[in-house]
Amino acid sequence: MTEMPLPFAAVLFPGGVFALVLGLCLKGLDRRIAARLQRRVGPPLAQPFFDLIKLARKDSLVPKAAPRLLFLTLPLAGTSTAALAVALLPIGGVYAPPAALGDLLVLLYLLAVPAITLMLAGSASASPFGAIGFSREMAMVLAYEGPLLMVIAAVAVFVGRAEGQTVTFSLTEIVAWQQAHGPLIGEPALWPALLAYLAFYPANLGMVPFDIPEAEPEVLDGPLLEYSGPALGLFELMSATKAVVVLGLGIALFCPLAPADPATALVIHLLKYAVLTALGVSVVRTAMGRMRIDQAFRFFLKGPLWLALASLLLVLGRMG
């Protein structure tokens, strides 16, 4: 593993440009696979790039009642936060984030920012559909944030105690421990947490069955309803990059193993992203319908919350 200078890590690799491009590629892959599952031909793999170039050339309209500055800076804030958050994720055998960037707790805050920009965008767009999108997004965040916190706590306590401390919030340490002792995906006490994580990420990414805030036939894209042109393009970028952060966090927490050779390790890391996108995103969204907001809320309170809590208690009990 090599230490990279902080600006390079945040702007070029693995945060910033690399994250944006990877996000768009995964999105193209997802659309292609979903089309194939429905026995359609599907768009070309580079379709998200075409979409972005197109949106950059369109008019950007701002509703009369909307606060112009806030309305137009929100997508920028959301996208740059998501791109920065990728720099906090270590890649096994290739990259360890500089300590100055922060640990898991900072990442948790950065993960919340895109959701908040979406909420603000919904309410700033001065549209009733945006307001509905805002309240639904808020309900979803309340539903999935709890399980996520407990999943992260379970892993942090597990690795922390195995290393002889009480808890560690350093992702670098968590990945290094797994390189030495095997991946946490093979640890029965953490299986419930893994299941909870698998339920969390479609909700965070706003995908079927949890795409309730942006449900197109119901609330006409909700928070994004009034956005057009470059601003909408930035929101597309944000959602693509958010997928890189959330899937990358899953890889780092549960299965970061990679060979020592950096080139092979990077290829394997990208393959993990592709597999996760294909199985966890495309297949799920093709196979399921959309839940109602109350169903989704209850689902998270009944399922993932208890699973994550069970995992945390198992970890605490077994080692305490």
Partner: peptide, 21 residues
């Protein structure tokens, strides 16, 4: 319907007139 896929032309039906071409 799989047989008539407009998405291969890069098309996408969108919910908001602001997104449309």
């Amino acid at each position: 319907i799989p047989r008539y896929d407009v998405e291969r032309l890069g098309c996408r039906y969108c919910g908001s007139p602001r997104h449309a071409d």
